[in-house]
Structures are given as C-alpha cells and as structure tokens.
Simulated assay, not measured.
Amino acid sequence: MTVNATLPVALHANNLESYIHSVNQMPMLTQEEEVSLADKLQKHNDVEAARQLVLSHLRVVVSIARSYSGYGLQQADLIQEGNIGLMKAVKRFDPNRGVRLFSFAVHWIKAEIHEFILKNWRLVRVATTKSQRKLFFNLRSMKTGFSALTPKEANDIAEQLGVKPEEVLEMEMRLNGQDISIEPLETDHEDAVAPIAYLADDENEPTKQLENRAVALLQGEGLMSALDKLDPRSRHIVESRWLSDDSGATLHELAAEYGVSAERIRQIEVKALQKMKQELVLLAS
C-alpha cells in the first residue's frame, strides 16, 4: 500500500506526542513499493514519490532521535534535524543496490542529529575532529559510573575506540565542564561577579577608541589648525601663556612686551581662546 495520506500534525515542541502518534500511523512500504517509488524519483524527479518515501520513514527518525535524549536538547529539534537527514537519504537512495531505504537512511539521519548536537549542546564546540566525535557520542555509555575515569578505564576505552588515552580524558573533562554566563544572571546575588566584569577591556572598547582618536586629533592637528586661525599677536599670547615649555608668561610680562595693560592682554587671551574653541568644535563634529 502506498502512502497517500498527508501528515496531519506539524512538528512543534508543544504537540510532540500528537506528531509521534501521527507518524506511527503511517504504513510502511513493501520492498516492491519502495523500489517503484525510488525509481520514479530517480528517473522522473517525481515529487509525490519522494513525499511517500519520506512519510513512510518518519517513524524511523523518531526512534533514532529518542536515543539522543540525554543531551538536554528539545526532542522536537532532534526529530526535525533527523527529518532533514531522511530527506537527504531519499534523494540519494538507489534501490538497485539491494539495500532497503531504512538501512540506507540511518547514516544520514544520525549524521544530521550528530551535527545539530555538536553545534548546540554547548556554546563552545566540544568535538571537531572525527576521533573527538566518536568519543563524544560513545564515552557516556561506556563509562561504568559517575566518578572520574581511572587510568585503566581510560586506556580500555581508548583501545576500544581506537584513540589515545589522553583524548579520552580530555573529552571527559569537556563533557563534565559547565557553560558560564558571561553576564550576571537574575538569580545571582548582589555581590556576584560575572566574567564580563574582569574580561572587558575598557581601553579597547570601540567608543573609547574613537574618543581617544578624537582627543589625539584635537591635541595635535586640531590645536595647530585652531592656532592658525589667530592673528600673530593673539597666537603669541596663547602660546606664551599655555603652550610654553616653561611655566608660562604672566599677563604683566606680556603687557610690558606689547606696551599695553595686563587687562588688555587678558581680553585678547579670552577672545583668542573662544575662537580656538569654536574651531575645535567644528573639527570634532
């Protein structure tokens, strides 16, 4: 019997049981039906044939996904990823090799679920190489207790999986490690210090860097540009009062130099500084 029904329930976390019940009601295909549908898909790109092949094997995905329930991830997400693997398997399935779709699809379903777990189980990836992946998905089941592995146990597991004992111990440490929130949690007490407090580098923070560059510009090129806007007497007074390597000239010393009162020198200085400030504001904007 071919699968002519459509899946009545969409896959969501809140209706998982209804979804599982629905896929278990889908009839399995006979080998003859499977070969016929796969042949239509291969030769004629028959979308309906592909749909029937997928629907009839959704229960396989559910069964496989349930075996990965110990990683703290939503069962619905695992099934969804497994379904992607099933669709990839259907697309590549060749019935002429004498293998049933069930056996062929298992590899693709597990591969997608494995990839999803490795990407989402922790913020930091715990397994990237082939040997690390093998350890990740077998170490838990091969441990006999909750205590740390002894050297002998690590050697035994390494020998069975064809990896080094130190790789076994490193993976055990990664599996037992915990993710730490970089920012304070709502449940933390007032005195709790989160990593963000001591990992942040205020001096290299982007806005701080922009501010430092702006200050450097104003103190260098900006200052010279502002001085260039002054007349020679005003510039000499400002430089003598504020930019001298010595302690700076007094108002009376400059008054004697120009033959005017100290009050007049002060007025020229104030006007010059205001003009420079306006120029610096324009440069900073």
Rank of each mutant, 00 (worst) to 15 (best):
M1L: 10
V3E: 01
V3M: 02
P8N: 00
A10H: 07
N24C: 08
Q25K: 12
Q31I: 12
N45K: 13
D46H: 11
D46A: 09
R51N: 15
Q52V: 05
H57M: 09
L58S: 00
R59W: 09
V62P: 02
Q75E: 15
I84A: 12
L86Y: 03
A89R: 00
F93D: 00
D94Y: 01
F104I: 08
A105I: 07
A111V: 07
A111P: 03
K119F: 04
W121F: 14
V124L: 10
V124F: 02
R125Q: 14
V126E: 14
T128G: 03
T129I: 08
T129K: 05
Q132T: 06
K134S: 11
F136W: 04
S141P: 07
S141R: 10
S147E: 15
N155H: 11
N155W: 04
K164I: 05
I180Q: 12
P184W: 01
D188H: 11
H189T: 15
H189K: 07
A192P: 01
V193K: 09
A194R: 07
Y198T: 08
E203V: 10
N212I: 11
A214L: 15
Q219W: 01
G220L: 05
G222E: 12
L230I: 06
D231P: 04
S240E: 08
S240D: 06
S247H: 09
S247A: 13
Y258A: 01
V260A: 08
R264V: 14
I265S: 02
R266W: 09
Q267R: 14
E279P: 01
L283Q: 15
S285F: 12
